[in-house]
């Protein structure tokens, strides 16, 4: 599959995967503008390097790998340039928790759901970068362990270990609440 991609073919790829890539970047950064920028960069990079996509994994896994690397580069650059006054538009945990799943009918149910979602966000914030990535890919994007391994470059055993620690942390956070 090592070939240049036609514009309409690439457009199909973008349409199929844009939402998932954006969602992952949004949950990782909690910054809508940054997530949009990184999503665009992801597809730009994918288009430029399409010839190097050998088709060993799915396009989704390959794109997710690019997105993860872009996100890592972004945080690394921000850490290196900490002395610069870079804007941080990340929303706080309470704001992120305001988005409720539909179907919570009563006010009490909504409040409880919001509290639960807030507890998970709190736990996610306390995870290491790798644990967070693995956790979000598994429980928000619902990727298979093999796909997570392909996207992160980790082996499945390591992915399981990270997931286990992340889950334990969420469980602890929820347990502390009760």
């Amino acid at each position: 599959m090592a070939h240049e991609i036609a514009a309409d073919e690439f457009s199909t790829v973008v349409t199929a995967h844009r939402q998932q890539i954006f969602r992952f970047l949004l949950s990782s950064t909690r910054d809508i503008d940054l997530a949009e920028t990184l999503t665009q960069e992801c597809f730009l990079k994918a288009h430029r390097n399409w010839a190097s996509f050998r088709g060993e994994s799915s396009a989704m896994t390959w794109l997710m790998r690019i997105a993860i690397n872009l996100q890592k580069d972004h945080w690394r650059n921000r850490r290196l340039q900490f002395w610069r006054q870079t804007q941080n538009n990340s929303v706080d945990l309470d704001e992120a928790s305001e988005w409720l799943p539909s179907g919570e009918s009563s006010a009490e149910q909504k409040l409880l759901a919001q509290e639960r979602v807030g507890q998970v966000w709190k736990a996610v914030e306390g995870l290491s970068e790798r644990q967070r990535t693995v956790f979000l890919l598994r429980y928000v994007e619902e990727l298979e362990l093999s796909e997570i391994a392909g996207s992160t470059g980790l082996n499945e055993g390591t992915v399981k270990a990270h997931l286990s620690r992340a889950l334990a942390r969420v469980r602890m956070q929820l347990g502390g609440k009760r």
Binding site: L100, R116, Y139
Partner: peptide
């Protein structure tokens, strides 16, 4: 339940942002 609601919440936020 918390994980399911977390996933739905992120999906709702993402769709709204897009």
């Amino acid at each position: 339940l918390a994980l399911r609601q977390f996933k739905q919440s992120v999906h709702a936020w993402s769709e709204s942002a897009l």
